[in-house]
């Protein structure tokens, strides 16, 4: 099972599917079936995405190809998650389900926007902005805020000023 980024799926389902099937072929595997398993709300946000498309694939891959395959999956950005399991045999009805994608009238609707669904997992707010070091935040602070209104003095200059005032007395 592979979790694919909806941005890639919007470009075309065959392109998105080829991301996985090409990787399997690259590492010496043969794809038996690969099919769309649905477009769902994620139970928790992944890479700030709250929706994704699932790809269910059954394939055979030689042992020596697995490490490279896993490494490529880890490095692939559009493949958000994956789960590789060893199975004894192809489940019943899987081939028939996969064959539906080969039909001439097969078409997938475009994935909805991220904020469509049962609930919104991720809403951009001030607190969600990526924060840099503290000095960056003070530089970005708008004028008139408490950060700007405080004038800091150099310790040496402040000490000299204090000494002058005592001499005057």
């Amino acid at each position: 099972m592979f979790v694919l980024d909806n941005d890639v799926v919007r470009a075309g389902w065959s392109t998105a599917k080829a991301l996985v099937t090409d990787l399997i072929a690259k590492h010496g595997g043969t794809v038996t079936t690969a099919r769309h398993w649905g477009e769902h709300n994620l139970a928790y946000p992944i890479n700030r995405k709250s929706r994704a498309t699932y790809l269910l694939s059954y394939y055979e891959i030689p042992n020596e190809g697995i490490n490279g395959f896993v490494r490529d999956l880890d490095l692939s950005v559009p493949i958000m998650r994956y789960l590789l399991l060893a199975v004894d045999a192809l489940p019943e009805g899987e081939e028939a389900e996969a064959a539906k994608e080969g039909a001439s009238d097969f078409a997938l609707p475009e994935p909805p926007r991220d904020d469509v669904g049962e609930y919104r997992l991720w809403e951009e707010s001030e607190d969600d902005r990526p924060r840099g070091p503290r000095r960056d935040r003070t530089e970005e602070a708008p004028e008139g805020t408490a950060v700007d209104s405080v004038e800091t003095k150099e310790p040496v200059a402040a000490a000299a000023e204090a000494a002058d005032s005592t001499e005057e007395k």
Binding site: M1, A43, Y44, I46, Y54, R81, L83, L85
Partner: peptide, 11 residues
């Protein structure tokens, strides 16, 4: 636990 990993179920 497998479903949680694939974000099908929440942690």
């Amino acid at each position: 636990k497998r479903a949680r990993h694939l974000a099908l179920l929440p942690f």
